[in-house]
Simulated scan of single mutants.
Amino acid sequence: MANFTLEDVRQRTYKARDAWWTVILVDPLAARLVRFTANRTNVTPNQLTVGALILGLGAGACFAVASWPYLLLGALLYHLSFTLDCMDGKIARLKGTGSIFGAWLDYIFDRVRVLACAIALMGGQYAATGNVAYVWTAVAVVFLDMLRYMDALEIYKVRSQMRNKLLAMREQASELEVAVRRAGNGPDNGAVGEELRSAEGALRPDPEADMEDQVVGDHPNAALQAEFNQRFPWYARIRNALKRGRIRPHLISGIEFQMGVFIVAPLAAAVVSGAIIPVTVLSGAGMLAFELVIIYKFWLSSRDYSRSLAKLEKRIAGYREQLPAEYEQQEAAVGSAG
């Protein structure tokens, strides 16, 4: 058996930044469970993923009963389900046993859990009260969860395309810069290469961050966040303060939204009848507010990208003008041979 320490778990599995719910309410327990699981058992990440789904469905079954004791039990089971869901990734990182299929399974099961629990929670309340508002609330929860993760994936995809474009331009610019120096037509100042390296760093995903951090892309020196940072200089101070506690600035993300609906709302309803809809509305409004910030930042980033791209293309064109005709002919010949 392995002999991982608690410090090993923290160093190897904690993300550089994570949701505040995870950092404060999940990681302290999950880290100890991961150490025990990794050292004493042969449980795999995929088995933990399946276990998280089973607990999530158990939470849904409790929500469907709708009485306050079962609402409390359902909230507890959902929290345990999310804890297991966090453990699967930690075990994979700790032991190096992650897989593409495991990542897919984790994502799909997360969506299944949200769908099942939304239908069970709101359906149970509708059956108990006859209030059709619970039906529409269930639809809203599923829609918001879908919107959040579709938006995250699409922005991540577009940012990847932007990054790849700049990487290709950097390679092209470097070749042209070398050619100009060899031809003796320009100074060796590395201006194009340096600017492209800066832009590349701005777009590079943080390997320690989760999907949401990669979507936000708020590197302190990010060239593509220049306009946002100019408009909101105080944001960097808040971000850096949160970062010291491993908390990302996206304070109400899909995770906090889920916890608000499936943990806070049932707990509140166990004390105050009818609290589920107001708590769900507040959770949804908070998530939408932060999503709008992300979209706004992405819009500003796209403007910075377009300006940077135009400037770099102009510089590359300038380098081409300095090259002798022989270089262009040689480049065309190489392209034809390829």
Rank of each mutant, 00 (worst) to 15 (best):
R163V: 03
N164F: 06
K165E: 12
L167W: 02
A168V: 05
A168W: 08
M169Q: 13
E171I: 10
A173K: 09
A173T: 10
E177L: 02
E177R: 01
V178R: 14
A179N: 05
A179I: 03
R181S: 05
R181E: 15
R181L: 14
R181H: 11
R182W: 08
A183C: 05
G184I: 02
G184F: 04
G184P: 09
N185H: 00
N185F: 00
G186T: 06
D188S: 06
D188A: 14
G190M: 07
G190L: 13
G190D: 09
G190V: 08
V192H: 08
E194F: 01
E195V: 04
R197W: 00
A199D: 06
A202Q: 05
A202S: 15
L203D: 00
D206A: 04
D206K: 00
E208T: 14
E208D: 15
A209M: 06
A209F: 01
A209T: 04
D210V: 09
E212I: 13
D213A: 07
D213T: 00
Q214W: 00
V215D: 04
G217V: 01
D218E: 12
H219P: 00
P220S: 08
N221W: 01
N221V: 04
N221F: 03
N221L: 13
A222R: 04
L224R: 02
A226C: 00
R231S: 12
R231K: 14
R231H: 04
R231W: 02
F232A: 10
W234E: 13
A236S: 13
I238T: 11
N240F: 03
A241K: 10
K243V: 07
K243E: 15
K243I: 05
R244F: 07
R244I: 03
G245T: 14
G245F: 15
